[in-house]
Amino acid sequence: MREVAVTGSDGAVDIRNTLQRMRRRGGLPVAFGGLFSGSRQFRISELTGTTTNSLRGLAITPGNGLGGKVLTMSRPISVADYPASRAISHEYDAAVGAEGLRSMLAVPVVVRGRVRGVLYGALRQPLLLGDRALTAAVESARELERVLESELAQELAVREEAQRLLTEARQRRGQPPGPQWEPSAEETDPAVWEEVREAHGDLRALAHRVPDRQLREEILTACSRLARASSGRGRQREHRNGGPGVELSPREVDVLACVASGATNSTAAERLGLRPETVKSYLRSSMRKLGAHTRLHAVVEARRAGLLP
């Protein structure tokens, strides 16, 4: 299974707040760090107390430098004088030197037994970092781990729910229509297609709760396939596909999917995490593009255009 990244939409805020607490508790003038986003490297993404951007975006490879050693050994490490230390390799000396850092510590962020990132604290003098700084860094890392564990559990739950809905929809509609596709008796059953439409609406609402961009795109792609399958069915039945060339934004489709399920504007806003006024705006825009005069008419035209199942 593809590894789940732990850097959600609020990941930057989480680590920024953690670094600020770590500086305050540990008396550290400089703190920085980053989290993995699914690759073999992680990048230093958040800085606090720095005077340059020499460290921002720096890709840390396991085994290299202080952070890379922490990634490999999965335990806190500190050095009293980074440029002169023989305990680490020195691939990143230029970036560290540009910021004027000397004494440095690094602690791993571990979620479900895997190192997911590193937090650093540093001084601009070659001094031995004491227990206060190290304890603050470790405690801050543990707090961030609990936040990430919660986010990861939520993402996995969303992933499982999305997979369930996809499986259910596929079972209800059969395989996607091909060039010679003829609708079966089950596929022309309105009750069956109402369940497909309900699953489609649930999936679109669910997609915007997913911090993993790739998973979110997979869900929305599956939604488009469901809509196209229904559009193909409609062409067989009606020999036409209304609304040629109509393009709606993803959020306009989201709103119409909610409206199609009978949701009010306030209910749609709650499901999609939007304000009711924003829902109204999207609905007016989609109605204009579809040439529709009512909410129901807009849903009908969107189905004819292959935008909704």
Rank of each mutant, 00 (worst) to 15 (best):
Y82E: 02
G49L: 05
R102S: 04
V300M: 10
G8L: 06
E91T: 04
V4P: 08
V300P: 01
A269K: 04
L203K: 09
G273V: 06
R235E: 13
A162Q: 10
Q125L: 08
L165F: 14
I44Y: 00
A98K: 13
R56H: 13
A185C: 03
R24A: 15
V255H: 06
E149T: 14
L215W: 11
G243N: 08
P244L: 06
T294H: 07
R116Q: 15
G63W: 11
S184L: 10
R21T: 04
L35M: 15
L28V: 04
L203M: 15
R288N: 09
A268D: 03
T50D: 00
T278D: 13
F32V: 00
S285H: 12
M104R: 02
S286Q: 06
L71H: 03
D81F: 05
L272W: 07
V246A: 11
S39E: 15
E145S: 13
C258F: 01
P179V: 08
P183R: 06
G243Y: 03
H297N: 10
A191N: 08
S39F: 08
E161M: 13
G130S: 12
G63S: 07
Q163C: 05
E46K: 02
L152T: 04
G121Y: 03
R43D: 10
A141Y: 06
A87L: 13
G273Y: 06
R213Y: 10
G243A: 13
P276M: 09
E3L: 12
G67D: 04
V6S: 09
V300I: 13
F42E: 01
R284I: 01
E168F: 10
A137K: 03
S74R: 15
R295L: 08
L28M: 11
S103P: 04
A84G: 05
R275N: 11
D81V: 02
R251D: 15
G245I: 03
R21N: 09
E194G: 09
A12L: 15
A263M: 11
G121K: 01
A137Y: 03
D189Q: 11
R237A: 14
L66Q: 03
Y82M: 02
L248E: 08
L119E: 00
G245F: 11
G201A: 11
E187D: 10
E168S: 13
E168I: 04
A298P: 09
G11W: 05
R235L: 14
R275Y: 12
R2W: 08
F42C: 01
R284T: 12
F32P: 01
E217S: 15
L105I: 12
R16C: 06
S261E: 11
R216A: 15
P76G: 06
